[in-house]
């Protein structure tokens, strides 16, 4: 066993090289494990998406839908039209407006939300 306290220069060089290789070895193995794990989950997700994409057999829809006949839910403030805006972004914008005005969301009515492009500014 070599003296590792008063370590010689060649031993130190060897230890440094070995250490760097060990770090690489450990992380490369971990990378392989994570890649395998990732591909398993990706496959699972792809098959779930595929299954969701196949339309379930349904009966022909009636001409008059239930939606048209039912009254709107209590507290609903009409319809909101979105132009070039994702529903998620719209929800965020409405929450920010409500917060800024200090009013509950159900007391506000949003008619439409439209993305303003750089050219329009």
């Amino acid at each position: 066993m070599q003296d590792l306290v008063n370590i010689s220069i060649p031993t130190a060089a060897g230890t440094a090289l070995l250490g760097y290789l060990v770090v690489f070895f450990g992380l490369v193995l971990l990378m392989i494990v994570l890649l395998i794990m990732g591909s398993v989950f990706e496959k699972k997700r792809a098959s779930a998406e595929k299954a969701a994409a196949i339309p379930a057999p349904t009966r022909e829809a009636p001409v008059l839908t239930m939606e048209n006949t039912l009254p709107k839910a209590k507290g609903t403030a009409g319809e909101l039209k979105l132009y070039n805006t994702e529903p998620k972004d719209a929800a965020m914008i409405m929450a920010i407006v409500a917060d800024t005005l200090g009013k509950p969301l159900n007391e506000l009515r949003f008619i439409s939300i439209r993305e303003v492009t750089d050219d329009e500014v």
């Binding site: 250490g19 760097y20 690489f24 450990g26 992380l27 490369v28 990378m31 994570l34 890649l35 990732g38």
Partner: peptide, 21 residues
Amino acid sequence: SNPKSLLLGAAAQLGVFVAFF
């Protein structure tokens, strides 16, 4: 989402072993 990042984490330990030496 990008496990190859681990290679960069390994590469950046170079200073540890150079400073040790």
